[in-house]
Design a protein around this nucleic acid. Structure first.
Lengths: 198, 198, 198, 198
DNA sequence: AATGAATGAGGCTTCATTCAT
DNA sequence: GATGAATGAAGCCTCATTCAT
């Protein structure tokens, strides 16, 4: 049992590394097993194809966001602070590994079990929703917003914008500008009155 | 020349159909040429690979949005009306063909020429920016927003939310609810004060 | 010992079932052990390969013929009666399981020990030879036939004809007709004068 | 077209050679194409697997029997002479290539199109039936035999006996003895009175 | 004796790509 | 430009077999 978990762990770690190195298409199962130090056949005990690994990888990435925010965020610090944290983290992770958008995107698309994705994103959505709810109670933002929907919008927007930074190869300065504007856009979407960012 | 254009057109039409049918990964050049009624070799006179077709396909999809809005939208009708139009259209197209997000996404990702994508999305961004600018002048929305950035955010958000509708298989009623909340979120991001939607 | 015999019995039963289900080529050791409810490695304690099971299976099939004839046949009932019994039985068994010819054929072909097959078929040949000898003594058939050879011919002919019934998918009525003609052919091969069948 | 036929011909010739050399199981597609001097992929333009070649090979073998008998046989020479010819030929061919029974057997078994086999064997059956009919008219054999059925029995019996010679590894002398007894058995099955063979 | 996770050789098969017509 | 039979590199994936427990 312990050994089994170990093998799967090895595959995931290696697969992530190779995907990052080679990209989704140019990754070979043979490379994954080589780096994992296991036999070719062993791979197929756990996954049916290289693409089959993506959902598990995406799960790690998304839950990592949640864990990060749960660790370094603080609901009492106010919405803006926590949004900054989320934006910084998601942008940072995406900058460090350009294949992350593809992994997450393809991972979601391929997962046969739709509910699985709800489960994966749920904690992250819920965390952001909690920020929103607290801010509502606190009078920081409007009371009439629906935290359930808005939390999804916020995450989606951060992720797609971060992805765009890579696709369109923006410079560091531009990236910072985007982050500010993104924060501004998001805060204003929920504020009582025009939010002053910066 | 006329014949050449015809062949390329046949390839695009067929490729789109096969991608829709089989998905990106399981589409074969042999299937594309078979449906197009042309020879295997002919394909390579126009494209280097099946993935090479994606940028052209994505261009059609995105510019179709622009054309639609240019045709049925009206800057003077106000931001809300035009946003509704954009949301409805993008949601509708995505509902009709579930592979559209993948085509656009993969198209962007694989395009060697990043600038090309700027070119493709530029008209759409500019159109939305124009709506924003007009609304600013009109006093409908705040004057301090940056239309350049916000137009990207708006399009990104609509596209990613529309994609989520498919991935997470929401019901028709849920989809409508999402559209309303999305409109609310977006309008509030730019409004002087809490926007009353619905 | 009892347990060992039990395992081997499980393998044989399961192998027969899977062969019947999947055919010789598409049968996997993994399927056999799965149905037998034993471990993968256990299989190799008794057989070296899936094909190695065939001789044992074929032995069961052929000796089953012998046992059946020994049980329900009666040398004193005359050659014709016993031939009818043999034909009916072999046809019946082949109709019930279409893979029997292949199991027996492949079993013979692959068996490293040729003599083993002589041993397997010997009792059946001898039984038929006994019928022939008795019929000779009885004056039912010619005295100059060689029971050793003719018994082989009779069995071969019944088996190959029964197999043909499956391969060429004859109807029930046709099968009955073949059985009559086969009996006629065989009886005439040994009779003093034209045998009247039916 | 001519080239296509040529490739298929090359595959058949090479496949036959490799099957003869290595046996059915140990034959590799890679060996077939190597000997045929064609590319690996070319094989799959004509057949889906090595086993897929068997029906075509079996067809050649069976029709070769027919052609041989049509060429060297003579209906007027009497049944016995022609039966000797058939027995000699079939035994000879089987002795020269021990995989022939397997090729024919597996070929029949695998052919999806049952009618195809009727077509393949039909000319051979018809030829033997013609011998029988002529012998009937000639008074050489009984009038009441059904040539349609008996011709099948005769061919089946010769083939299965010839196959047994290989399987049970009989000596040359034994083979000759079998041939005589087989002729005797067959002739008696159709004669007016006990046939004197030898 | 029994287990079953792990192995890894190597044949299978695809399918983008070519090029003579 | 158009064709499509032929190519063959190379990655997939199976599955018999092992062996530490």
């Amino acid at each position: 049992m312990a050994k089994t978990a170990n093998k799967k762990e090895l595959i995931l770690k290696s697969a992530y590394h190779v995907f990052k190195e080679k990209g989704l298409e140019d990754t070979r199962v043979s490379q994954i097993v080589k780096e994992a130090g296991i036999a070719q056949g062993t791979f197929y005990l756990y996954y049916n194809s290289k693409m089959d690994v993506l959902p598990d990888l995406a799960e790690q990435i998304i839950s990592n966001y949640t864990q990060y925010l749960a660790t370094y965020g603080n609901v009492k610090a106010g919405l803006e602070a926590n949004l900054r944290l989320a934006i910084d983290r998601i942008f940072e992770v995406n900058q460090l590994d350009r294949t992350i958008p593809s992994i997450v995107y393809a991972g979601i698309t391929r997962s046969g079990d739709i509910d699985k994705w709800q489960v994966i994103y749920r904690p992250l959505y819920d965390l952001v929703a909690k920020y929103l709810e607290f801010a509502k109670e606190n009078g920081e933002i409007r009371e009439d917003i629906d935290a359930i929907y808005f939390s999804e919008f916020v995450i989606s927007l951060i992720e797609s914008t971060a992805r765009g930074m890579i696709l369109f190869q923006h410079s560091s300065a531009e990236v910072e500008k985007y982050k500010e504007e993104l924060l501004s856009f998001t805060l204003n979407a929920v504020s009582w009155e025009p939010a002053k960012v910066l």
